[in-house]
Design a protein around this nucleic acid. Structure first.
Length: 192
DNA sequence: CACCCGATTATCT
DNA sequence: GATAATCGGGTGT
């Protein structure tokens, strides 16, 4: 399976959020492989009041302002990490796609070890859940996702536009009118 | 240094 | 459906 390259991420953030549906997230831990298909995403742009990038570059969010195809991992609510992929056109300062849910494909036993007592359906159907199941922490903030390593993304399915559902983003207080949450239609691993 | 808040989840009822 | 848990970063004194 081919690893997604810069030409995939070098587009408007909202477009890449849709394009990422159906692609595979690959995690390598101690020689073992975890794979999940992306089934739910959200877009956050530089001029979007709901984005961490909105108030400008800070040490905590600098990955969002860095090169496309790299990871932005942040910690929130005291307990949870969330994983984003940096994506934007060249003349724009920042932009990221939050990966909200995956369908477990490979390494399900290891995911269950990382999330003890959870059913397969509850392994990766939320942004904080999938980072736990894939052992994604701030250690991986800023890493290059376009080459083989601990974390990268590979080509997968191309989801037709008519099978993509756009809805309001979840858990934000500003810019709630934007329909920038994208899901694969009728996928049982989408959150909520 | 105190205060506030958040791109969430688990665990109740 | 409601709420507690939990903590790093931002903001202001």
């Amino acid at each position: 399976m081919k690893i997604l390259q810069k030409s995939f991420y070098n587009h408007p953030t909202v477009q890449v959020a849709k394009d990422l549906l159906g692609k595979n997230l690959v995690r390598e831990i101690e020689g073992k492989l975890l794979i999940g298909k992306i089934v739910e995403t959200e877009a956050y742009t530089h001029d979007d009041p709901a984005s961490h990038a909105y108030k400008g570059e800070r040490n905590a969010n600098k990955s969002l302002f860095g090169p496309v195809g790299h990871a932005y991992v942040y910690f929130t609510y005291g307990n949870h990490f969330c994983f984003n992929v940096v994506a934007k056109v060249p003349n724009v300062s920042a932009g990221g796609v939050l990966i909200r849910a995956l369908e477990p494909i490979e390494g399900i036993e290891i995911m269950q070890e990382l999330r003890p007592g959870k059913k397969i359906k509850d392994l990766t159907n939320g942004p904080g859940k999938l980072t736990q199941a894939f052992a994604i922490t701030k250690e991986l903030n800023g890493i290059d996702l376009m080459q083989k390593g601990p974390l990268y993304l590979t080509e997968g399915e191309v989801i037709p536009e008519e099978n993509i559902v756009a809805t309001k983003r979840i858990g934000i207080s500003r810019a709630q009118d934007k329909l920038w949450r994208f899901c694969i239609e009728e996928n049982q691993f989408v959150s909520r």
